[in-house]
């Protein structure tokens, strides 16, 4: 009986999680659709099946590459050239720990935003013919299947860490995308980033923060507690410390940014009150450069 109960509970949780995955994927798709309308093109000729340009037929071109319709219009013979394609490994990491569950007002929790961003970026990479995988997961793939696996991993399995670490070598060709709130102290951050980069300059750090964390919009007497209830601060009059707090959080953000600059990575700050698709568009532009 007990076992049955346990199984049933597990089943319900799994179903809830599955629904979450669906939702995550669909929200990522929504965000992606608005981005893909602007093409992430490589702008060079290659072996991809996508058409790139017409070029005059030259010796050595395969006859089946000749575009007869185009050639019939003029005296010359044109061949279709296809886009060059370079498969690249994109390694994504999304921070999952209790602090990410914070939200203020009607805004979505940071975790939700971060996960959506992660999956959306994965989708974008896959759609544009690259490979995407989560950090510490080998199954980098280019298919929908690998994306589903990624979504599943994000919703269910991810280990709870506030900072990315790895024991694998990351190839110099692959690019890293790290998404989280990065509120840890500077030493930990530096250690983590250095361990990942090892000379890899293809990195992007997306710091996802709630506007409340930026502005501290509380008043009166408030007890602040971290998400685990381990650290407590009893503030009698929040208004009086607001400016000091904002000063501190700003300097922290600029330190994170500085850290990225040092390694040669890109840095983007995303506040959860901004739209995800907007953010994705700027990110994609950043990546496509």
């Amino acid at each position: 009986m007990n076992a049955l109960k346990h199984v049933l509970a597990l089943r319900t949780r799994a179903e809830d999680a599955a629904a979450d995955i669906e939702e995550l994927i669909s929200s990522a798709e929504r965000a992606v659709n608005s981005v893909l309308s602007g093409e992430h093109a490589q702008r060079k000729s290659g072996g991809h099946e996508k058409f790139w340009q017409y070029r005059e037929y030259m010796q050595g071109d395969r006859p089946q590459d000749i575009d007869w319709r185009q050639s019939a219009k003029t005296q010359r013979v044109y061949a279709r050239q296809k886009e060059w394609q370079n498969t690249q490994d994109n390694i994504l990491w999304c921070s999952v720990y209790d602090g990410m569950n914070f939200k203020s007002g009607n805004l979505p929790p940071k975790a939700e935003v971060a996960k959506t961003l992660t999956l959306a970026l994965g989708l974008l990479f896959v759609r544009s013919g690259e490979r995407a995988a989560l950090l510490n997961h080998s199954n980098a793939g280019r298919s929908e299947k690998s994306l589903n696996a990624m979504a599943q991993e994000l919703c269910l399995g991810a280990q709870k860490t506030s900072l990315p670490t790895t024991n694998k070598d990351i190839s110099k060709n692959s690019s890293l995308v790290l998404i989280g709130d990065f509120l840890d102290d500077d030493q930990d951050l530096k250690r983590s980033f250095d361990g990942l980069s090892r000379g890899n300059k293809n990195g992007l750090v997306i710091q996802v923060l709630d506007p409340a964390e930026l502005a501290l919009p509380y008043d009166g007497r408030v007890v602040f507690e971290d998400m685990n209830g381990k650290v407590r601060e009893n503030i009698q009059h929040v208004g009086s410390v607001r400016d000091a707090y904002q000063e501190r959080i700003k300097s922290h953000i600029s330190r994170v940014e500085g850290l990225c600059e040092e390694i040669g990575w890109h840095y983007v700050l995303h506040s959860t009150d901004h739209s995800i698709s907007e953010a994705l568009r700027t990110l994609w532009a950043e990546i496509s450069q």
Binding site: L183, F224, E225, N234, S240, V241, I249
Partner: peptide, 27 residues
Amino acid sequence: MPPPPRLVNFPAVRFLNGLASQQKTPS
């Protein structure tokens, strides 16, 4: 019996450390 304070779960609580002592409003 002052009115009970509000309790807020706040990930960035680290940055509030030490600020509490600065304010002087009576409790």
